[in-house]
Amino acid sequence: MISSDVIRGYNDTIILYMLLDNESYGYEISKKIKELSDEKYIIKETTLYSAFNRLEKNGYIESFYKQETFGKRRTYYRITKAGTDYYKEKCVEWEVTKQVINRFIKEVN
């Protein structure tokens, strides 16, 4: 299990990734994050919704209602053009970060 402190700066990136190919909703996103990370990262409810709020305010995602079966209404999210651009930026940033951090990583006996 990864501590949420380490991953904090990349929650937005993770969520945007989930929305790249298709729109989705809260629980589905958190479930997929759990699966894709081999259950090593479970995003907290509050973290997820803080991120949704932040991303929407910045115009990176849009929310809309979708009627589900049994008349249940769900809030779905889709990524915007700005969101995709931001995602690309974050990927570049991560590559650099990874290289930098790797400089300081070595086996210690």
């Binding site: 907290k44 509050t46 803080s50 709020n53």
Partner: peptide, 13 residues
Amino acid sequence: SEFGNIDELIHEF
């Protein structure tokens, strides 16, 4: 246990 911390929402919103 997977709910998280309400302070996070208070801060974000």
